[in-house]
Design a protein around this nucleic acid. Structure first.
Lengths: 182, 182
DNA sequence: AGATTAGTGGAGGGGTGCCTCCGGTTCAAG
DNA sequence: CTTGAACCGGAGGCACCCCTCCACTAATCT
């Protein structure tokens, strides 16, 4: 499991700071996307900027630590739904995909930017979702001319748009999903 | 026509600079969204930052001058398609809407932010597109549970996502439009 | 050509962010 | 309790951006 990659420091105080930074970063990234100010993150965590840099030498290190977990959970969901009917399984996963996008902006950027970390996140997502998609498509539940990449980009675009309220977002997502049914 | 609101300076050199700034801004906004650096725009235009500020006291003034025209054209298209069948008219307009989003990021932001200018752009778009939508819906070509706002947000989200190529964007837009058919 | 002003541009003050470096602090092992 | 290693925090150098202000330049008028 990729979360193993998130190494925690040894000393008690160091560990505390590490966790605080992680929490602060989660917040900041959700609010401002990948571009959130590192100094702001350090401030939120009540920690010096130096401490941030020691734990996470690059912005990517920090981002990765924050999101690897959520992406992993997305992969876990994919496994859990395999016993559902093909279309339902895919729909559940896609809606979950949207749900995790409290990290919205970040995941949206992840699909489109190019970097070591983004690539690996993308790979995990694809590995998790594509089988569901293929199964649904083979069962005739998804139109034959669509690709998984199409669908993921479509959904990620929808997610990162702004809506009046949650209900509207759900409604719109519903239209789009109807559009890819076979 | 709102373009009348864009007053031009009188002196020949001033006029030249004004146009250069407009062109530079169009470029910069398309590349970096509404947040493009004003100093960069002045540089691109080969003009001092002071000149930029005299012509466009606020970022909004500049943005408005750049985009009002495109939005107006969108309104014009809405008029031109009124003699087509309801669904076709709407689809053409929506695809045109996407096309103008060379200004993508900007229009996307326009739907979601709040400011004097954004509001007025939004109003013009709604005034142009909503009648088409209502007509299509009354003709039964669009599902009854969708609103024009839903559709516009859906499309704008799709537009601002990243795609491998134009073909993919068109394909995805096609799925989404299928999803709102009645 | 000379006067008149509209128009110019960039220096400068204030702000924020990135990242490095290192003197000082604190944990925890003995 | 002592002490060395681990860890801390923020000052400081650099870069970029915003916006104002005003001495200067040159287009236009006569």
């Amino acid at each position: 499991m990729s979360s193993d990659l998130v190494r925690r420091p040894q000393r008690a105080d160091a560990r505390r700071n590490f966790e605080a930074l992680l929490a602060a970063a989660r917040e900041a990234f959700a609010e401002n996307g990948t571009e959130a100010s590192l100094e702001d993150i350090a401030r939120r965590a009540g920690v010096g900027i130096g401490t941030l840099y020691r734990n996470f030498p690059t912005r990517d290190d920090l981002f990765r630590s924050v999101y690897v977990e959520e992406i992993d959970q997305l992969a876990a969901v994919a496994v859990q739904v395999t016993d559902r009917p093909p279309w339902e399984a895919l729909a559940i996963w896609l809606r979950r995909f949207v749900g995790y996008a409290a990290t919205k902006r970040a995941i949206y950027e992840a699909l489109n930017r190019d970097s070591e970390m983004f690539r690996s996140c993308r790979e995990i997502m694809y590995a998790a979702g594509e089988p569901l998609f293929v199964r649904a498509q083979e069962a005739g539940a998804v139109r034959a001319d669509a690709t998984f990449d199409d669908v993921l980009r479509m959904v990620s675009g929808l997610v990162s748009a702004g809506y009046v309220d949650e209900a509207q977002r759900d409604r719109v997502l519903g239209y789009a999903l109807d559009g890819i049914r076979g």
